[in-house]
């Protein structure tokens, strides 16, 4: 089929549209899972409970903190190897992003 409408790049455009349809479909299915009604048996419950969502949030925060600490830790060890800072400062700097995880824990209690 020729889509004259899109000019010479019609194949590219057609692919893009197809892809965005795919994404929309996946998003819809994901929403269905998250907001899943309890099915025909009654007692409707979402697929992911509040606690579950909190756990995901904390996990993501921990991944972020870990990623940040990767760079800082490398730099701290480098500076330690040159004797330019004390071990204490190195450790403090390295674990600073850990506060992100502590903030994320707040979500558990509200």
């Amino acid at each position: 089929m020729k889509l004259r409408l899109f000019g010479r790049n019609y194949e590219v455009y057609a692919n893009m549209i197809e892809n965005s349809f795919d994404i929309a479909l996946v998003a819809e299915r994901l929403t269905n899972i998250v907001l899943q009604e309890g099915g025909l048996q009654g007692d409707p419950q979402p697929g992911i409970t509040t606690d579950g969502a909190t756990a995901i949030g904390i996990g993501l925060a921990a991944i972020g903190a870990g990623y940040a600490e990767r760079g800082i830790g490398a730099a701290a060890v480098g500076a330690l190897a040159e004797d330019s800072i004390s071990t204490g400062i190195g450790i403090v700097m390295t674990v600073l992003p850990e506060t992100l995880v502590i903030f994320a824990l707040v979500a558990l209690f509200v």
Partner: peptide, 15 residues
């Protein structure tokens, strides 16, 4: 790639 580590050491040496 480890620019952080190298940079920290280089800056210390530079000082």
């Amino acid at each position: 790639n480890n620019p952080e580590y190298v940079n920290a050491r280089v800056r210390a040496r530079r000082a």
